[in-house]
Design a protein around this nucleic acid. Structure first.
Length: 903
DNA sequence: GACTCCCGCCAAAGC
DNA sequence: GCTTTGGCGGGAGTC
């Protein structure tokens, strides 16, 4: 009881006076003598009552049900003693008394026993103590610095342990590295967005299928832990390329120190994220360590797979799990299967809905930076993007590029050295993702300079890469596109010149808005870009099929300009889609690899996503539209999502005017000036540098970072909104000229709906082939959710219909819902649904509250509920609209008896 | 004996 | 060359 009270006191303490000083923590309330005595009790009690120590930790400290405060209070004796000493510094007599108590009573074996037991030193408990030092939701005004040395000392642990904790927290963006030995505490501000991003990435990585595949094989006894089979199992999904993928990052939460980024691989961070992804994509959200380890191993070098590796992976997973448990995101359970009882963890964190409701303007806010002058943050990002941090890693597989990358990295290092210094003053939480003046100030100039200097290198790299690509007719058009983004940010004045692919290996893609309104960019290694990125539901920039864009073959400025312009609002997305295109068209380097397989799916997905994007753009551009769309959204997923993204929506609503308006304005102006279309495009690009600035700035992160754009408040909030308010671009024009779609009469408001992505809407691109849809079920989920959030009539549906008809997607007279993509919703959600159905049937959670099986919300969802039951493997079938209803990747696993029990 | 996971060596990266 | 990070796996503690 006392401990519990203590814990509560600690908690309150933190919330009331958030760790301005790290040391000022838990035991403050113990200042009163009474409290002190109480606090001391546990230390002395072992003597009086030997069993007391055990009583202190009566329950498994890792179980979510355990009271955090309890755990905190149960901190190791020495820590408490130290804290007590600190608290009681004003009361020497009591301190002496306590000390005496310890010395007198705790001697010999007993004293040793009084020492923290192994359990008390566990990472989970340590994490609890660590977390107890900081408020869950720190105020931005506070000093949220974390000094590892201090923390380690305070918690009486070696710093190595703190790293373990911090790395996991970092993976959740609860902390971010500020400088050497220094971190910034963000608390749970970013957690929702991070989880959403992770879920999205997890879906894109098809973790659901991987899990199911593993389970299936296990069940079939085809999989045994002897490496060989294991490897076989993992291959279908995993690939070495995948393993190098990606750390999901939030804007403003990027690793600010080059050192952090340059580490070979943030294995623990990445592992942590992937581990979380597994939960987020699983249904039910229970993941066994074995499965997790296999998946994670599968993504690593399978060739090295062996028992020791597996054990090591398991160890790391335990480490991660302990921290996640302390965060109460998961809790340990046991899954009893036919093969026995296996340790597993159950997700107990917040429910993370798939891409949702889009918070409409997500893309807008993020992808449309304010006019360059005000968008300092983007400049900073720009510099980062231009000199990605993971160059070395990305190019490890391209020996010929190592040297080049090295030199580039050196340059980058120079630029990034700044962040290493503790200059950053404010934590970048949701609320204060504001700019980082100190850093930003220096970046623009440096970035620009570096850009110039690196452009040459970039070109070299690009050329090399192009050469390396087999029969690559397209000299990395995506790269070109990708690189363009940074330019505006670094120097908006510059003509639409290709920005140096500072990091050829980086394949940034902005995933425009997700349901949560969290748009993010994912940076991938070139090799993996096609697998993951392409899955992104919201690529704003469609890879233009060669057939439709012949000019793309060579990186002619013309083509570039065209593409760039077309990219419009979400240029970032450009890279990936284009890249995927490139990859697709390239002769396969290897025989069919998992990545390639993914590529195919992703390509199809891209096609599939176009309409979604289109719609997403609409949402982004037109809040009201977004609202209307919300109405269409399945009720089941709306509430939470809305809740989670309220603040984002608010943000977006404050930024009514957007890039598209600028584009439209430019188009109009060009029109009025009788400027040829091609020139018009160029002009647009020049005039609307911001349009590409943000994507660029998102683009710079190292490999595979998924960046929820919503977080880029520093760029959006600050300069952007002001510009918009200023009405930089007039919206009086009533016509919108699309290079592809032609001139579409529309009002200014409608412009929003069409937006730049409309440029991409060509019959070719927008066509949703059955394959494409089937291939990208996961994506669909996000898209679906994001698009199905509206509640008000969609004012732009007419525009949409017009456009669709215009491009021949739908016959004249046919009206589609505000969000045509909705029709594919089932597909998107299918993977989960399918798994869900099968899992629900097979899995029983005893102690745990079973997740409510989600009933099919739509006919499409029903579709997935194959008549034959969960075990039935549905065959691909096309809907009336020609789209597939089932994802090829969806796995149907046989029923299994599965029991989940909490420890 | 299996499960957990602490501990600290040691190498990479950074300064 | 020293410090910071953090991968890694031996092996101890726990069940």
């Amino acid at each position: 009881m006392q401990e519990a009270e203590m814990g509560t006191g600690d908690k309150e303490n933190h919330s009331l006076e958030p760790h301005g000083s790290i040391l000022k923590t838990p035991l403050k309330q113990a200042a009163a003598s009474h409290s002190v005595l109480t606090e001391l009790q546990p230390d002395c009690q072992p003597l009086a009552t030997p069993t007391k120590p055990k009583e202190i930790l009566p329950v498994d400290p890792w179980t979510p049900t355990s009271n955090l405060k309890m755990l905190i209070s149960a901190a190791s004796p020495e820590i408490r003693s130290r804290e007590q000493r600190r608290e009681l510094s004003n009361n020497p007599s009591e301190v002496l008394q306590a000390k005496h108590c310890l010395q007198e009573h705790l001697s010999g074996d007993e004293y040793e026993k009084s020492q923290p037991s192994r359990k008390e030193k566990s990472l989970g408990l340590l994490c609890h103590k660590f977390l107890a030092r900081y408020p869950d939701y720190p105020s931005t005004a506070e000093n949220n610095y974390i000094c590892l040395d201090e923390v380690a000392e305070e918690l009486n642990v070696e710093r190595r342990r703190i790293y373990d904790i911090v790395n996991v927290l970092e993976s959740l963006h609860m902390v971010s590295r500020l400088a050497k030995n220094r971190y910034t505490w963000h608390g749970r501000h970013n957690l929702p967005k991070t989880l959403q991003a992770l879920k999205k990435v997890g879906e894109e990585n098809k973790y659901t299928q991987q899990i199911q595949m593993i389970k299936k094989r296990e069940h079939e006894h085809e999989f045994d832990f002897d490496g060989e089979k294991n490897e076989e199992m993992a291959r279908p999904f995993g690939s070495s390329e995948h393993s190098e993928m990606s750390f999901v990052e939030l804007p403003g939460m990027e690793f600010r120190a080059a050192s952090v980024n340059s580490r070979k691989d943030k294995s623990l961070r990445v592992m942590s994220q992937k581990f979380v992804m597994l939960f987020l994509v699983s249904t039910p959200q229970i993941v066994s360590l074995e499965v997790a380890a296999k998946i994670l191993i599968g993504e690593d070098q399978l060739e090295d797979l062996d028992k020791s590796k597996f054990k090591t992976k398991i160890r790391r997973l335990y480490d991660i799990a302990n921290v996640l448990s302390s965060l109460e995101l998961i809790k340990k359970v046991h899954v009893t299967e036919e093969r026995g009882r296996k340790p597993a963890f159950k997700w107990t964190g917040p429910e993370v809905l798939p891409t949702i409701q889009g918070t409409t303007l997500e893309t807008t806010s993020v992808t449309r930076p304010p006019p360059t002058s005000e968008f300092t943050p983007s400049k900073e990002q720009c510099s980062k993007n231009l000199f990605p941090l993971k160059g070395k890693q990305n190019f490890t597989r391209h020996p010929s590029l190592i040297k080049l990358v090295k030199s580039i990295e050196n340059d980058r290092r120079k630029i990034q050295s700044a962040p290493t210094s503790p200059v950053k003053i404010s934590a970048s939480t949701d609320q204060n993702l504001s700019a980082f003046p100190g850093e930003t100030a220096q970046v623009p100039a440096i970035a620009k300079h570096q850009l110039e200097g690196q452009s040459k290198k970039a070109k070299e790299m690009k050329m090399k890469l192009s050469r390396s690509a087999l029969d690559s007719n397209l000299s990395s058009p995506e790269m070109v596109l990708k690189l363009e983004a940074p330019c505006p940010a670094a120097g908006s004045q510059q003509p639409p010149v290709l920005c140096p692919p500072s990091h050829g290996s980086v394949s940034p893609v902005i995933l425009p808005q997700t349901h949560s309104g969290v748009s993010y960019a994912i940076y991938l290694h070139p090799s993996q870009a096609h697998t993951v990125t392409t899955y992104s539901p919201s690529f704003m920039l469609q890879p233009l099929p060669r057939a439709s864009v012949t000019g793309i073959k060579s990186i002619s400025s013309k083509v570039v300009n065209k593409i760039t312009t077309e990219e419009g609002d979400n240029q970032t997305a450009t890279d990936e889609p284009t890249k995927s295109l490139t990859i697709k068209e390239r002769p396969t380097i290897k025989s069919e690899t998992p990545s390639q397989r993914c590529l195919k799916r992703s390509q199809a997905l891209q096609e599939n996503n176009l309409p979604k994007r289109y719609r997403s753009d609409k949402e982004n551009l037109d809040p009201s539209l977004g609202d209307s769309i919300k109405t269409e959204r399945p009720p089941s997923s709306s509430s939470q999502t809305n809740h989670e993204t309220d603040h984002f929506q608010e943000e977006r609503q404050n930024k009514p005017e957007t890039l598209d308006q600028n584009v439209a304005s430019c188009h109009d102006q060009c029109k009025r000036e009788d400027i040829p279309e091609e020139e018009s495009k160029i002009k647009m690009k020049q005039d609307i540098p911001v349009a590409f600035a943000i994507p660029a700035h998102e683009t710079f992160f190292p490999s595979g970072y998924l960046i929820p754009l919503a977080q880029c408040t520093h760029g959006n909030k600050a300069g952007f909104s002001d510009e918009e308010k200023a009405g930089i671009c007039s919206l009086q024009h009533t016509t919108y000229s699309s290079p592809i779609a032609g001139v579409i009469p529309m009002t200014a408001s409608e412009l929003k709906a069409v937006n730049i992505p409309a440029f991409h809407i060509t019959p070719l691109n927008i066509m949703l082939s059955p394959t494409s849809i089937a291939a990208a079920p996961v994506l669909s989920t996000s898209s679906l959710n994001s698009s199905s959030t509206t509640s008000a009539p969609n004012p732009s549906s007419s525009v949409l219909n017009f456009t669709l008809q215009h491009v021949g997607l739908i016959p004249a007279g046919v009206q589609v819902p505000a969000n045509p993509v909705l029709q594919h919703v089932p597909i998107s959600s299918q993977p989960e649904n399918s798994s869900h159905s099968s899992e629900n049937v097979n899995l029983q959670e005893k102690p745990c509250v079973p997740k409510e099986p989600q009933l099919p919300q739509t006919a499409t969802e029903n579709f997935f509920r194959t008549p034959g039951g969960p075990n039935t493997v549905p065959s691909l079938s096309a809907n009336s609209d020609g789209t597939n209803r089932i994802s090829p990747g969806t796995m149907y696993i046989p029923q299994r008896k599965l029991e989940v029990s909490e420890d």
